[in-house]
Design a protein around this nucleic acid. Structure first.
Length: 486
RNA sequence: GGUUCCGUCGUCUAGUGGUCUAGGACGUCUGGUUCUCAUCCAGAAAAUCGCGGGUUCGACUCCCGCCGGAAUCACCA
């Protein structure tokens, strides 16, 4: 059984999280069918007014980042090309002419002003606006510059939707839709039907917003003598704060914006795939391969799902840890390029890996690296107030803090080996020597060395910072403390 | 307004007539992991299954009505 799916975006801008799922799901379905599956990418650029030059590249880039691949498309070609609808203009015309000959379509010379009036009149009369009620009595021979309209065959229609189940609609939603526009290009309504047929698509997966137009498509299939493909309506991704469909106007970010924010493509794919789909098990984290293996259309949810960034963030953290734990620090490190703080630019990869190794399990996004790791790469700005206001340290006097620093400097300075274990032993010994609680002594050293709100375990932090830098920083704080007291 | 779709914890969801005094995950809260933040672990709170009728010995699950929400009604896709 062949399974041919497609993603058919229009190049009007970036792909946002509200609509990538209509690329992910068909991809998954095609790949699940293995050798029998094919995923086609088609660019629906028939709207000249909204066309954005760079949009196609942006779309391709987004899909690639997510790890999606296609078997035919604008960049790689294929036997069903071309894959830009504007380049298929003659094809649509051919089929439109066929309908014209059959008397199932007509050239409509009515100007847009008149049409607008029809609409207004009907609205005032509170009757549903249907163009077929205003169908011109005589229509001219078709020639370029005149739109072609379908001649509707309104009747009750029933069909099956793989997600929504058995659906039906009455004649009141079927109308004389435009097939070919004045500019000679087809409308989406017509073009997609011809393309899907010619390209052999077996499943039409798209957002539910097309569901109300389906009766018109049914009529078109009928008139064209085309077997109807499987219709798979995908529920909307909803705004986090309400039940409305998420769109660019609601601030839906582009998928690639998340890449810049340090979201892993694995996490994005995982989150999006599971927003409105699950395999019935309690699994939450899925690799792309698992998704392909387990995905099934009949388990797609039929109600909309709110987009919840918190869960995405959680999932991203899970993926960061998973990559490190399963593939090692090098695999994670490769993904951190571009996310390091400015002052890390002269550090070696080796050093950065050591930093990553002790900090990775507190990352939610890769870009957290920028804020969380600066003190590993250069001496932090000394902030005595931060020390004095710390909830554990404010009980101690400045001279007491000073002598604690002295003892620490001496102890750590005499340390022969600077490895993690020796450091931990030394810190424990210091605890005993000073009689202080870890909360006090460790907070002091940690802050003196990092002046950061948080850091990894103290011995690990000192280990990476190194003996020389650690001692220098402690001494500098000691000096600053003295001058502060004067 | 017409048409169509949807309706289980705050959110994503499991659930296909009895095992549901409704399970999991995120989030929230509490406790633990020698400092912090996070991870991790343990635990808690959180859904009268939109409402009202029916069918049935029994309904979240089937039927009807209602209510609420959404989508769509372009020479845009």
């Amino acid at each position: 059984m062949k399974v041919i799916t497609r993603f058919a975006p229009s190049p009007t801008g970036y792909i946002h999280i509200g609509n990538v799922r209509s690329a992910i799901y068909p991809y998954l379905v095609a790949r699940k069918a293995k050798k029998d599956g094919k995923f086609i990418l088609r660019i629906e650029d028939t709207d000249q007014a909204r066309y954005v030059e760079s949009a196609t590249d942006l779309i391709l880039d987004t899909l690639k980042w997510l790890g999606l691949s296609w078997d035919e498309g604008p960049d790689i070609g294929g036997k069903n090309g071309p894959y830009y609808q504007t380049e298929r203009k003659e094809l649509y015309l051919e089929y439109a002419k066929k309908l014209l000959e059959q008397g199932r379509a007509y050239a409509d010379p009515t100007d847009s002003e008149t049409i607008e009036n029809y609409r207004k009149e009907d609205n005032e009369k509170k009757i549903p606006y249907l163009y077929r009620n205003h169908r011109p009595e005589t229509t001219p021979e078709w020639k370029e510059g005149i739109p072609i309209r379908f001649k509707a065959d309104p009747k009750p229609r029933k069909w099956h939707d793989e997600v929504m189940g058995d659906l039906h609609a009455g004649p009141e939603v079927q109308d004389d839709i435009i097939l070919i526009k004045k500019d000679g290009l087809p409308t989406y309504n017509f073009a997609h039907i011809i393309d899907d047929y010619l390209m052999g698509c077996t499943h039409i997966m798209r957002g539910v917003e097309y569901l109300p137009s389906t009766p018109n498509y049914l009529a078109l299939y009928e008139a064209l003598g085309i077997d109807m493909p499987k219709i798979v309506s995908l529920p909307h991704v909803l705004r986090p704060d309400g039940r409305k469909k998420l769109g660019k106007r609601d601030g839906a970010k582009s998928v690639t914006e998340y890449r810049e924010d340090g979201i892993l493509p694995e996490a994005m794919l995982n989150y999006l795939a599971c927003l409105g789909w699950n395999d019935g098990s309690e699994q939450e984290i899925y690799t792309k391969e698992e998704l392909i293996e387990k995905f099934s259309i009949d388990r797609i949810q039929n109600s909309g799902a709110r987009y919840d960034e918190t869960k995405l963030l959680w999932m991203n953290g899970q993926w960061i840890r998973r990559i490190k734990d399963e593939k090692g620090i090098d695999a994670l490190f490769e993904k951190t390029t571009g996310f390091w703080p400015e002052n890390a630019k002269n550090a070696t990869d080796e050093y950065r890996k050591r930093v990553l190794d002790i900090i990775y399990d507190r990352l939610k996004t890769l870009s957290d690296l920028r804020e969380m790791t600066t003190y590993f790469f250069s001496d932090p700005k000394i902030n005595i107030d931060m020390l004095l206001n710390n909830k554990f340290l404010k009980k101690l006097s400045e001279s007491e803090l000073g002598s604690l620093l002295d003892i620490s400097i001496t102890k750590l300075g005499s340390l022969g080996s600077w490895d993690r274990n020796s450091l931990q032993d030394a810190l424990n010994a210091l605890l005993e020597e000073t009689g202080k609680k870890p909360a006090e002594l460790f907070s002091l050293i940690r802050l003196a060395v990092s002046f950061a709100p948080f850091s990894p375990a103290l011995n690990l932090t000192l280990n990476v910072i190194g003996k020389e830098a650690t001692l220098a920083r402690l001494r500098a704080v000691k000096v600053a403390l003295l001058s502060d007291g004067e």
